[in-house]
Design a protein around this nucleic acid. Sequence first.
DNA 1: ATGTATGCAAAGCATTTGCATTGCT
DNA 2: AGCAATGCAAATGCTTTGCATACAT
Lengths: 146, 146
Amino acid sequence: MILSKGLKASSPLTTAQIEKRLNDVGVSATAQRIAICKYILCEADHPTAEDIKNWTDLNFPKLSRATVYNTLEILVQAGLLKELKLPHTGKIVYDTNVEEHFHFLDSATGKLFDVSPEECQVTLAMPKDISVQGVEVFLRGKISIK
Amino acid sequence: MILSKGLKASSPLTTAQIEKRLNDVGVSATAQRIAICKYILCEADHPTAEDIKNWTDLNFPKLSRATVYNTLEILVQAGLLKELKLPHTGKIVYDTNVEEHFHFLDSATGKLFDVSPEECQVTLAMPKDISVQGVEVFLRGKISIK
DNA sequence: ATGTATGCAAAGCATTTGCATTGCT
DNA sequence: AGCAATGCAAATGCTTTGCATACAT
């Protein structure tokens, strides 16, 4: 299983690096957006909008809720983020892993893990007139403690 | 692919039949619950609470929103219904198919179809310390018109 | 200056809750 | 009477929106 942190920058990104990533996808790098990206790309693990707001309240005072949602939408459009609506919660969570992958929820802790397509293979045998364009898999279970 | 209607009673259930099904699972069969079941078990296809409320507004005046939600929760607890939180909508939908199965969303029409475990097989190759207890699969695609 | 981004507060929407009322048994 | 079920309306929680202000080029 992919540990979610594994895909993130192992060390915090610099402001300049974040600016470049934003510019590369055509998003102007405002201070608010950089702050949000710092949290999302380096610290957070499948954060919700609320998680992000809580973090900015501590680290970037006066950043508004609207800007959080607005920025998230822009980052999703830009392909830097994936929006997840998972069945275990009503809240939308955001994923920095934009490659194809699935999710595993540890029911004991509520923690989400990414699952690679190698670890979870889906074999379809659907009627010929059905073309499947997207596959989402959500797993629940437990991690046994050794 | 299982046509959703295929699992429903092919002809409308009688009130007596619904009463029996409710009693069998230990749910007292009130007029409101029977009305809701009539819609859910015979007419509806993956309805939302709102769909049900709209139907009862026409067919069982004065049935309150609270009773709709309350009844749905009871039916879910009783195992007659499954609650689905699917990623394409913010609304909870209810499924009369309580057997293990997955879902396919026709992106063209927004219509949901049940998918049997034979049509969609999931092969897991997870680390040994992970025990998976639940698998949910959501497919999106198109149905080609012949 | 001009357009974009932001902040604030209010609105939306689905769902939940509290509580008084109704209706069985 | 006693208890469960219902109805009503308000509250909740997440997300979205409208609009005025501030910012950057």
